[in-house]
């Protein structure tokens, strides 16, 4: 089963990514951006949900709705495509987003430390991820530059 790291703990990933049509389950689902923008009243029932965007998604449309969002997942199409790192920094810095920020898609263990520094606080990991992956969140105890954390 795919794994999730939340608050530095490894657990099973029970979140479901919805397309534009699928019926909305009671909780733990990720909506595509357009669907969220079209139906923001979803947030009213208080059940855990989030929006999933690509790493290169411009943030202008999403920005006015950030306060209503408990979770944003940024999808990495390829691990070498670093746009999601900047998207996270933009959300945390320029747009002041405070909710949960999750990295998903093609990411791997050795990126966790930098992802975390850019403001991600949860990570979707492949099936083979085990406890040892968590060590990479602590690869460094010092750093030079200010970052999201």
């Amino acid at each position: 089963m795919p794994k999730l790291v939340e608050q530095q703990q490894l657990c099973d990933n029970r979140w479901q990514v919805l397309d534009d049509q699928q019926p909305i389950p009671p909780s733990h689902y990720l909506l595509p951006l357009a669907r969220w923008l079209a139906a923001r009243e979803i947030a009213a029932d208080g059940a855990p949900f989030g929006v999933i965007i690509d790493g290169d998604q411009p943030l202008e449309e999403l920005a006015p709705t950030l306060a209503e969002l408990p979770l944003i997942a940024i999808h990495f199409a390829k691990f070498a495509d670093g746009r999601g790192f900047s998207t996270a920094r933009l959300l945390r810095g320029r747009y002041g987003y405070r909710g949960e920020l999750r990295a998903c898609g093609d990411i791997f263990r050795d990126q966790l430390f930098f992802l975390q520094r850019c403001g991600f606080d949860s990570f979707e990991l492949p099936d083979e991820a085990d406890q040892s992956w968590l060590q990479s969140l602590h690869d460094f105890t010092v750093s030079y530059q200010a970052a999201a954390r």
């Binding site: 691990f79 992802l115 460094f140």
Partner: peptide, 14 residues
């Protein structure tokens, strides 16, 4: 040098 060393945002530039 210090600012760029292990800069978390720019390890996977184009």
């Amino acid at each position: 040098r210090q600012w760029s060393t292990l800069h978390p945002e720019f390890a996977f530039l184009p």
